[in-house]
Design a protein around this nucleic acid. Structure first.
Lengths: 215, 215
DNA sequence: GTCTATAGCAGGATAGAC
DNA sequence: GTCTATCCTGCTATAGAC
């Protein structure tokens, strides 16, 4: 109980979560079999039932631990910025875009995270509820408070929420739909390209913020 | 051969495609069984093999016929605009956003289309190839030619492609991730809300087009 | 040509041996 | 506690009756 036998650090349990996450992200819930997962995790079928009770529960545990933890790390740069005395809207937007596209996660993690998110985003499932309650909702609300703090003139929250959704849709898409992006741009993802995308989204969103002046 | 017995109009075949499309969009390829589809289409298991050869082929046929056909209808408003003597960038962007969000499709069709697209968007599959070759590529290229036609000053194609991707990511997201949108905005989809979204994306993209002037 | 009946296999879950 | 061996269900595909 004092070191290795609690739920958090059992190595078999961790390996199962690792492989489950990878495979679920890659193929989706129904396309992955428990046999596939346990073989990859170098253990046996019954281990899933022992540690998680069922396939469904293993899936949910991936969201409860892995995804929520990654979401926290994505949130981190925003919190850092918020600690500062002051910041500009441009810095806020760039921090948002960077957090998702070149931020704290490794490229592999980013891909998995986007895939799992995208898979759950359109169905009201338990996994979706975990994500929205633990990750998306607090993140969005925090970002909006930060905007209201740094914008020179007040902007109605509805507009800010729409802009948040627009930014979010783009970072998700540029991570998730890479085949479409490389096909359209005739260009592979490398550091320079990602920086270009971050810059594109930043400028896009900034103009969206100030945009209605010209109307 | 002269009326009802060719592939295009066999009523059982059509019902199978209808139900397959609905269920695949709703649950994804692996979560749907042929039994489910044939029961919904009020026919028997063997009919799938008779008409399509396999589950995989039925799936692909949904893309080859239904999705490509819908993509053509989404393309239509753009073609109409292109026939005109001249048009503004704003008209072009609004036409693009409307085509996906309130355009030629019914709401039900729009949902299905977005779901099927989103499901295939991240994996290089046969279905993806059909979509990108038959629908996305020609559409994107046409839109870019139209932009180059109506923009007062030349804009490099790479920038236009990025803007196309940004618009596309947003319309896809606002169709596909409705649970997230309603949760964030605390608002259900109705005609007024959809119009607001179209307006939001239009302004967003327009500013993105002219945006770097202010930098 | 249509559809029933079944083959053959893979899935998740679990009983029970160690 | 661990893991093998097995259960049973549900799947796709197809052979063959009508």
């Amino acid at each position: 109980m004092n070191q290795e036998h609690n739920n958090q650090t059992d190595p078999t349990r961790e390996r199962l979560l690792d492989e489950a996450e990878r495979l679920f992200a890659d193929k989706g819930y129904d396309a992955v079999s428990l046999r596939e997962i346990t073989t990859a995790a170098d253990t046996h079928l019954a281990a899933v039932n022992y540690h998680f009770g069922s396939k469904e529960n293993l899936y949910l545990e991936v969201f409860r631990t892995r995804c929520v933890e990654r979401a926290r790390r994505i949130h981190q740069p925003l919190k850092e910025l918020d600690k500062r005395e002051s910041f500009t809207p441009e810095e806020l937007v760039r921090t948002l875009a960077k957090a998702f596209l070149s931020g704290p996660l490794t490229d592999e993690e980013r891909k998995r995270h986007s895939q799992l998110l995208a898979r759950e985003m359109h169905r009201q499932s338990k996994a979706f509820n975990i994500l929205s309650q633990e990750a998306m909702k607090p993140f969005t609300e925090h970002a909006i408070r930060m905007w209201q703090r740094c914008l020179p003139h007040p902007v109605e929250p509805e507009r800010l929420k729409l802009i948040m959704l627009s930014i979010f849709s783009q970072v998700l898409y540029f991570n998730f739909a890479r085949p479409v992006v490389t096909l359209t741009m005739e260009r592979e993802y490398d550091q320079e390209f990602v920086e270009q995308i971050v810059e594109h989204i930043t400028q896009f969103a900034l103009c969206g913020l100030n945009g209605d002046k010209g109307k």
